[in-house]
Structure formats: C-alpha cells, structure tokens
Design a protein around this nucleic acid. Structure first.
Lengths: 269, 269
DNA sequence: CTTGACCCTCCCCTTACAGGAGCCTCTACC
DNA sequence: GGTAGAGGCTCCTGTAAGGGGAGGGTCAAG
C-alpha cells in the first residue's frame, strides 16, 4: 500500500489531482484510515491511474472517463468513444485553423497597407504606367456607397487568394447617383473559377493617377481635379476608371477616416 | 441611445455578455439611469463592440482586450499582439493535432488487432509462405523481456508510418538468459532513414508458424513444441526467428493477458 | 391602471485542478 | 517519551466567460 505522496510519484499525478479524482469518484483509494483520513493505494490501482491518465491525454473529461472506464476492459471497447472524441478534436482543430488564418489575413493586410503608405506620399496628379493585374470582381448597379457589398462577396469567395487592396471599377463616364455601373473586387494571385465572381486579367497601360486622402464621400473633388486636367490637355480616356483603396477602415479598427488613402486611376488611350 | 436589449440585437452580443463586459470594464454603457440602473448605449459604442467582438473571435481574452484596445487605434498598432496570439494558436493547433493522431494510432491499432484475431484461430503448428515486409527495428542485447524498450524507441521514430503489429527478431539459436541478441520493431509502410533504427526489407519464405496464446513468459512452451517438430522432421532453419505480437496489452487498457496472441515464425531453408 | 415585455442585482454553476490556511499525523532522532 | 520536520487532512477561494434562474423593479402601449 502506498501513501498518496508515494502513489503520486509513481503515477505522475499530483496529490491534488488524486484527491480530486477521489472526490469525483473516478479513482478511489483502496483503503482509508478511519481515524486519520489518510488515503492508501494498492499496487493494482497503478494501472487504473495509467488508464485514466491516458484518457485525459486524449482529451476526455473526468466525468466521461468515470462512465467509460467501468464498461471497457480492452481498447476495442472504447472505439466508439474514441471516434466521437476524434471528431470533436477535429472540429476544434479546424476552428483554430480558421482563427489562425483570420489573424494571418489581417497581418497580411496590415503589411500591404504599410507598403502602400510608404510610396503614397504624393497627392498630385501623375502619369504612370500601370501593370497588368489579375482581378476578381463582382459587377453590380447601385449607389456608389453600396460597392462594399461587392467587396464582401468577393472577399468571402477569394479568401486568402487575395493579394492586394480592394479595387473598384466604374463603367459610367459620368456621375450616376442611384444606378452606377460598377464592380468591386481585389487583386488576386491566381485564377478563381466561380459563377458569382468574374476573374480575369485587367490590362494595364498609361494612366493618370491621383491619391485621395480622407473619407470617400469627398472623392468627387479629386475626380473634378482629374477631369479638369483631362479637358485642359485634351486627353482621351478609356473606361472603366479604377479606384484602389490603399488604406481604408481596417479589419479590426475603423481607424481615422482622415487618413484613408485611395488612388484613382484613369486610363488614357 | 439604445437600451441593452436593442444594443444586444445590433451588436449580436447577449444581454448577459454586455452586462459582463460592463462589469469587467471593457465596454461601458454610455449612460446609466441612476434611479433605475438601466444601461443605455450610444450609437458610437457599436464600433467599440464590433472591435471587441473581433478580438474575441481572434481568440483574445477580455482582460487582454481591455488592455490592448485603448492603446490601439489602427490595425497596425495591434500587430505585436496579433503575432503573439497567432503563435499561441499555432501551439494549440499542433497540440490538438498530436492528440488527434494519437487517437488515430490507437484506432488503427485496434483495427489491426481485430483483423488479426479473425484468422488467428489455430494454435497448431502450420507451414506458411510469409511475404516480404518492410521492417524498421532497433537491435539490442539483453534479457528477453527488455525488448519493449526497442519497441518504444522505434514507435517514437516511426510514428504513423507503422503499418502492422510489433515484430521482434531473435538472432540466437539457443536460449540466452541475460544476453539475447534481438531486435524489436514494426512493419512500416515506407522506408525510414534514421541513424538509430534500421529499416529494410525482410524477405519472406517458407516458415513454420505457431500462435501462442497467453502471457509471454510461457512462450517457452510454444518454442519447445516447434523445436520438437523441427527435430522430428529433420528440418534446417534460418535465423533470425520472428515473433509477431498480434495482440498484446492495448494502448489504453492492459487487457486480459490470457487473450494475448503472438505468432512465432521460424523460417526454413 | 394594468399588463406584458424588459431590465435590474445577486447567486450559483460550469472544468480540472492549484494555492493556501489551519490543523493533524507519521517517522526518525535524541 | 518528546520533538521537529515532512507529509497528510479538510475547507475555501480562484480560474474564463459568461449561462440560468430567482426575485423584484420599470417601461410603454392599450
């Protein structure tokens, strides 16, 4: 017969744990001194303790163990319980993986924002060569501010294949209050085949660009500036126009709208 | 101003949760009626609630959130916290994966035992053709009962590549009490390159086999039976002898030793 | 004024123990 | 036989993030 301390050393369960298991009725001492209340364990209880430890390692709760162990005497008796537990653990794993990849996405997004901000100092009109991009978008009609629904839709489908900021395309050559023809989406790193969204290469070319700082609802001012420039220089443009949301509300924090950055790109013929 | 119930509908946090957040100081109501104690929330608190929800989804505890949120105003401020949390979640994932694969191994083992038992009815000597197997083993000298240490070593390294029962090899042609030359290991499903263990193909051939039922310490009787047979029929044998532990103590339960099954294989020239 | 929905506080419950207080017991040594 | 120190006992509290419910007050509409 071992005292609780000795038994604790043998089984690698703490004394606290052994007392708790006694309380819960899952591992009873073999003898209790009636006068002193001291617990004593027989050699034969070591195996039971090992079984309990094993089940605990496998993620079983002690209430479960208490009901499983008495009705099992071989591994094969526990198959159903093991399979059930396996299923639960798999669910936990996949939910943790989801969380982890959500964090990863946020970190990527932050990293991209950081990179964008570095070279986004100018707020003057400039003429740039824009590269081809792979773009996945959802085309829709509505008010300008409803473009967010397209971003959400594409983000849900494209997920981690997104490789750049949100980009929206505007197919109207004029301001269209309630019925703008537009597309919201993202630069992605591979082709995405999906009925709902349209993924293709947007060819680049020479474009006038202007970085707009602040909330989107004042973006009209920036458009005005660009159109004045186009008129003055008698340029011919190619639709759709693009807007890149270099920095907008974050994935967690809305951030200060005064610091939002969007780049308007108007392609020239 | 919204009552707690309305705010609960907007934020998708339960009333209980909102009261709890108030208590913990992480999301305070904007106004509390002094007479009635009713909580009221302003529109502007919706965003804070959303931020908190987001952090909760990402696995942060409310105590953490309480300290993180005030010092962050943009996503990028939270990078360090996010990275730390990501690390923790990754650890959780890998530990869950370990547990899951432990369960999987046990289930596989049980399945294999089940299959072995089906055709292990005979306890008579029989002559069989044994197929080639890929075997990973650890060779050692010592007492017969110490073979378990080799199994453990190989199991640790081979892990899920193990595809069959434990198999031990005995290189002595005679009983060797304290200094047996033996190897313990498993059938595996692919080559394992490792300094400590030796993995190769064991070629099969014609062999005498006998299934031993019961504890290993009486296996001598079965050997005796085989050797008598060999002598009587004047057969020539090829070392090492093999023992397949078809069914032994389980991964969880020791099981009843009377039902242990081991197959002795002695190869003939 | 009533009624039903809504809100309040306070308390207990969940897991699998850990930490600690206060007290008792065992064993070895003097 | 006394004592010291190690080891044992019970009981209480705490953990994370709320859920459930009791008992009682409040709001808004009819």
């Amino acid at each position: 017969m071992y005292s609780i301390g000795e038994f604790s050393l043998i089984t690698r369960l703490t004394v606290k744990t052994l007392r708790y298991y006694h309380n819960e009725g899952v591992l009873l001492p073999d003898y209790i001194d009636e006068d002193t209340g001291y617990r004593y364990y027989r050699e034969s209880s070591i195996e039971r303790a090992a079984i309990i430890s094993k089940f605990r390692e496998l993620g079983f709760g002690i209430a479960e163990i208490k009901s499983i162990v008495p009705e099992c005497s071989q591994d094969s008796d526990a198959v159903e319980y093991l399979k059930a537990k396996q299923k639960i653990i798999r669910q936990e794993i996949s939910s943790s993986i989801k969380t982890e990849s959500a964090i990863k996405m946020i970190l990527n997004q932050i990293e991209r924002n950081r990179m964008n901000n570095v070279d986004a100092a100018t707020t003057e009109i400039s003429e740039k060569m824009i590269e081809d991009i792979i773009y996945a978008g959802f085309r829709m009609k509505g008010k300008y501010e409803e473009i967010g629904t397209a971003f959400k839709k594409v983000a849900r489908i494209a997920g981690r294949r997104i490789s750049g900021s949100p980009v929206s395309l505007y197919y109207n050559s004029e301001y269209s209050e309630n019925d703008a023809d537009m597309e919201g989406g993202f630069t992605v790193n591979c082709n995405i085949i999906n009925k709902e969204i349209n993924c293709r290469v947007l060819s680049g070319g020479k474009a006038l660009t202007l970085i707009h700082r602040g909330k989107y609802d004042l973006i009209g001012k920036s458009y005005e500036k660009l159109f004045r420039y186009i008129k003055k220089n008698n340029l011919s443009i190619r639709l759709p126009m693009r807007v890149l949301y270099l920095k907008g509300p974050g994935m967690i924090f809305r951030g200060n709208p005064e610091n939002y950055l969007s780049e308007i790109q108007i392609f020239l013929n």
